[in-house]
C-alpha cells in the first residue's frame, strides 16, 4: 500500500469514528466497537512477535491484564489521568516482555511459548493474592465525570481505543517495511543464516517482545474503565489469548494487514453471534476457525489473496 493511501485510510477511519459519535447515541454500538478494536490491537501486537519474528506467545492475556492492573493500582495509589495510565500500562507491559524475552529467548522457541503461558499464570496468581487491587474478588472502577466534548464516557473510550489501534497499525506497518522488519523476517526464516548475515538476533528478538508487550499493556490499560468492574477471571481470560492468536493466523501472519483483516472479520462475527446465538457459541467459533484456517490455509486470508493475484498476473 502506498504511504499516501495508507495515511489517507487511517485519517478516514478516524474521521468516521469521530463522526459516529455525533450521530449515534446508542451505547451498545460503542461497546461492540470497543471490543473489536481492543481485539484488533491485541492481534496486531501478537503479530509483531508471532508473525514477523516467528515466536509464539500464548500469554497475551497476561500482558493485557498487566496493563489493566497497572491502571487499577496506579489509579488507586496516585489517581493518575487516563493518558498517563495508558503510558504506564505500556511501560510495564514492555518491561515484562523484555524480561521474559531475556530469560527465555536464548532457548528454543518452544520454551519461549511455554514461558509466556507460565508468565500469564504466575501474574494471575500474584493478582489473586494481591488484595490492594481487589485480589480474586476483583474491584470496582469509578467512571470519571469528565469525558471531553463527548456525550458519554464510553464514546470517549471508543475514540481513545480507535486512536490507539490506528497507532498500533501504523507502527506495525512501519516496522514490517523497515530494516528492522527485514531483520525480524530473517530471524523467522532462519535464525542461523540471519546471524551469519550480521543480524543481531537476540537484540532484535528483545525489541520485538518489548514492542509486543508494550502494545498489549496499552491495549489493556483502559479496560478497567470499560468494564468498570475488573476481576482476574475477565482480565486474564483465555478468550483474549485465543483471539490474539486466532485473528492473525486467520488473516495471515506475514503481512501487517493480516491481523487487521482477521480481527475485523472474527471480531465482527463474534459480536453478531453473541447477540444472535450465545456467548459460548461465539467462543467456540474462534477455536474452530483457528484450527480450520491453520490446517487448510496456513498463509491466512492475505496469503490466499496474494496467491490468487499472482496466479492472475502470471
Amino acid at each position: 500500500m502506498k504511504p499516501v493511501a495508507f495515511w489517507g485510510a487511517l485519517a478516514a477511519v478516524l474521521a468516521a469514528g469521530l463522526a459516529l459519535t455525533s450521530v449515534v447515541a446508542n451505547e451498545y454500538y460503542y461497546n461492540a466497537l470497543y471490543v473489536i478494536l481492543q481485539a484488533t490491537m491485541m492481534a496486531v501486537a501478537w503479530n509483531i512477535l508471532g508473525g514477523f519474528t516467528g515466536y509464539v506467545n500464548f500469554g497475551s492475556a497476561g500482558f493485557f491484564a498487566i496493563g489493566a492492573y497497572t491502571t487499577v493500582a496506579l489509579n488507586k495509589a496516585l489517581g493518575l489521568p487516563l493518558p498517563l495510565l495508558i503510558l504506564a500500562g505500556g511501560a510495564v507491559g514492555g518491561l515484562v516482555g523484555l524480561g521474559l524475552g531475556y530469560l527465555t529467548l536464548r532457548l528454543k522457541g518452544v520454551y519461549f511459548a511455554i514461558a509466556t503461558l507460565a508468565m500469564a499464570i504466575v501474574v494471575e496468581t500474584l493478582v489473586n493474592n494481591w488484595s490492594y487491587v481487589g485480589g480474586a474478588k476483583g474491584s470496582y472502577m469509578l467512571t470519571p465525570e469528565k469525558h471531553l466534548w463527548f456525550d458519554s464516557y464510553i464514546q470517549m473510550l471508543f475514540v481513545v481505543m480507535l486512536l490507539l489501534t490506528l497507532s498500533a497499525v501504523a507502527v506495525s506497518r512501519a516496522l514490517s517495511s523497515s530494516r528492522l522488519g527485514r531483520g525480524l523476517a530473517a530471524i523467522r526464516d532462519d535464525e542461523v543464516a540471519a546471524e551469519c548475515a550480521g543480524v543481531p538476533t537476540l537484540r532484535l528478538k528483545l525489541v520485538s517482545t518489548t514492542v509486543m508487550g508494550a502494545m498489549m499493556g496499552i491495549a489493556g490499560a483502559p479496560f478497567p474503565y470499560f468494564v468498570t468492574y475488573v476481576e482476574p477471571g475477565s482480565a486474564f481470560s483465555l478468550f483474549i489469548a485465543v483471539n490474539a492468536i486466532a485473528m492473525p493466523m486467520i488473516g495471515g501472519t506475514a503481512h501487517w494487514l493480516g491481523p487487521v483483516i482477521g480481527a475485523l472479520l472474527v471480531g465482527t462475527t463474534q459480536e453478531i453471534v453473541k447477540v444472535t446465538v450465545s456467548s459460548e457459541m461465539n467462543v467456540l467459533i474462534v477455536g474452530v476457525m483457528l484450527v480450520v484456517f491453520i490446517t487448510l490455509a496456513p498463509q491466512g486470508i492475505v496469503g490466499v489473496a496474494r496467491k490468487y493475484l499472482r496466479r492472475r498476473a502470471a
Binding site: 523476517a185 532462519d190 543464516a193 540471519a194
Partner: peptide, 9 residues
C-alpha cells in the same frame, strides 16, 4: 553447504 535462503523473501 545446504542452501538456507530467507524463504519468505
Amino acid at each position: 553447504q545446504i542452501p538456507r535462503p530467507f524463504r519468505s523473501m
